[in-house]
Each structure stands twice: as structure tokens, then as C-alpha cells.
Amino acid sequence: MFSLLQQTAPAAVETTTTTITVPITNAPAAAAPAVTVTPAAPVAATPAPATVTVTPAPAAATTPVVTDATPVAPVPAATAPAPAAAESPAAQTHATDSIIVPNATGADHAPVVAETGAGHAPVAPAEVVTTADGHAAVVTHAVPGTDAAHAVGAGGHEAAASAGMPQLDFATFGNQIFWLLVALALIYLILSRVAIPRLGRILGDRQGLMTADLAAAEDFKRKARDAEAAYDKALADARAEAGKIVAANKAEIDAELKAAIAKADAEIAARASESERRIGEIRQSAASAALSVAREVTAELVRAFGASADPATVDAAVDARMKGAVQ
């Protein structure tokens, strides 16, 4: 089905006169099969306007394609689909589209022709007439006076394009490329003239501001460090001062203390010499007392032994013996 559409669409484009293309050429040479063109029932015409269902005789293996471009008067045979065409709204707008059955050319072909009535393609793409055995006949009307682009692109002929991939519809390439280039040029101008310099400036400004702020922050940090150093220095100075004062006080106290100690020492020394002197005196008196006691004891002893002795001699002897013992 697709292929038939694809192949016949250009044929419809190129011609402005009645053309008959038969894609499948091996038509049966038998006697012309009776093609019964059933007038499309109104039921069938309502959902898909202008679609005419043609049921060929069982022998009809070929489904020729008829392209009609002339607003010729309908051949009498065309009266059969006419009711269906009249039902479609499109048929009224395209009154010139007419149905012909060009079977006058030969009886061995059994052309099937249906009015298609250039309808609204997405709703009712009307160019394909489906036969009973699944083959399709394509009838394309080119509205008189239209050119190739119209035949492909116009709403009534969209079915021919939409059957294939719209991406491969080369007739629209020029249009797309032209508008694409326009759009690209516009975008390029917008971006390169306005957006990129502006964004670059905004980002640059922000970067500059950030660096400036960072520098300022660095500056403040340095100042804070300086202040701290000054504080530390003042603290150290104060400490040194305090130490100095402490040292001075200490020296003074030391001097006073030394003086006091010296005074006390002198007093102690004075008292000690006084005591020594008195001890000496006491010792002196004790020694002389001991001598006199010794003399008297010796004189008495001498006398007791019966000898008379000169007291002077006794005294001298005692003194000699006592020398060194007392004192």
C-alpha cells in the first residue's frame, strides 16, 4: 500500500492532464472483469468522507491507478460514486474534481476510478481505494492550475506525503533549510551581539568584584594581625615594666634586710664579747681561788707531815705545779 502511494504521488505531480498509470502491469488478458462500483454507502462515507470502496470482481487482480487532472464532465459511469462524493464536505469545495472512468481505452484493463475529493487528509486521506483483496488503487486529483509543490504539500494531497516518512519529503527541504538558516542567523546575532558580551561582562564583573572583595578581606586580615602584634607588644612591655619594678623592690628589700641582719649581727657580737669577758673574769677568779686553796692545802699538808716549811717556798712549789693546770 505504501509503495503504491509513494510511486504514484510523483505521477500526480508531474501531470496536469489525464494520465493513467498502471503500476502492476501484468494485467490479466481475460475479458474485462466486471468492476462493480458499489456506491459507497452513506455509513462508510461518514467517518471517512470521500472514500469510496470498490469491490472488484474476484478475477480482478490488478488495481490500476488513475490520475485525473482535468475538470472534464463526468463520464456516465461516474455517477455511481457520485453520491458518496456529494456526502463529503470536501466535495463541495472541490467541485471541479470530477470522476471519470477512462475505460474507453481498452476493454482488457479494468480501471477502477473513484472520486477522492481532496478532503482533509489527517481525518480522511482519501486517495486510496482499498479493494477487497487488500490491493489498493490510487487516484489522485491534481486541481487544475496547481503546480508540483501544491500537489504534494496541499492539504488535499497530504496523504501522498504522509504515507512515507515526512522527513524524506524532499519538496519541503528548501523551505526547512531556508527557515533554519534564518533562525540560525537570528540566534547567532542575538547571542554573539548581545548575550555573549553581556554574560561575559556580568561574569567578569562578578569575578572582579569577588577578587576585590577578597583583596579587601585580605587587607582587613592583615590589619587585624598588625593590631594583634601591637597588643602583644604592649603586653610584653607592660610585663617588662612590672618585672623591673619587682626587681627594684626586691633589691631595696634585700638591702634593708642586709642592714638589719648586720645590725643584729653586731649586737650579737657585742653581747657575745661581753659574755666572754665575764666568763673570763669568772674563770680568772676561779683560778686564783683554786691557787689559794691549793697553797693553803699544801701548807696544811706540809704541816701535817710535821715538817716546817717556809711558806714562800711552798707557795712557789705549788705555783710551779699548778702552772698549766689552771688557766
Binding site: 505504501f2 509503495s3 504515507a163 512515507g164 516518512m165 524524506l168
Partner: peptide
């Protein structure tokens, strides 16, 4: 696949 379905 698309080409086969729609364009061939």
C-alpha cells in the same frame, strides 16, 4: 526499520 515501514 522506519524506512522499510514507511518509505520503501
Amino acid at each position: 526499520a522506519l524506512l522499510l515501514l514507511f518509505a520503501a
